[in-house]
């Protein structure tokens, strides 16, 4: 399955990625990001993450 990888050591759990996900595939749960199967690896979240914590796996 293609998806994204959120580096939890870099992530500041701000939720910006959740707000830009066109597929509502992300969820900020307290201090981590959960990715659901709706993720299409479009990469918008990786682009806007303030701290470069997200990588798209292709």
């Amino acid at each position: 399955m293609v998806t994204i990888n959120v580096n939890r050591f870099k992530c500041g759990y701000c939720g910006a990625c959740v707000g830009v996900c066109p597929f509502a595939a992300l969820e900020l749960v307290e201090t981590w990001i959960e990715v659901s199967k709706e993720c299409t690896s479009c990469g918008i979240c990786a682009k806007i993450c303030p701290v470069r914590a997200i990588e798209v796996e292709r």
Binding site: A16, V18, A24, I48, C49, V51
Partner: peptide, 26 residues
């Protein structure tokens, strides 16, 4: 529920932000 709001989306209101709709901040 803030920038990461899901509540609106669950009710059918499209609140998703395009990249030029968000300032990404540190």
């Amino acid at each position: 529920d803030g920038v990461e709001s899901k509540v609106g989306r669950w009710a059918g209101i499209d609140t998703s932000l395009r990249p030029d709709d968000i300032e990404t901040c540190a």
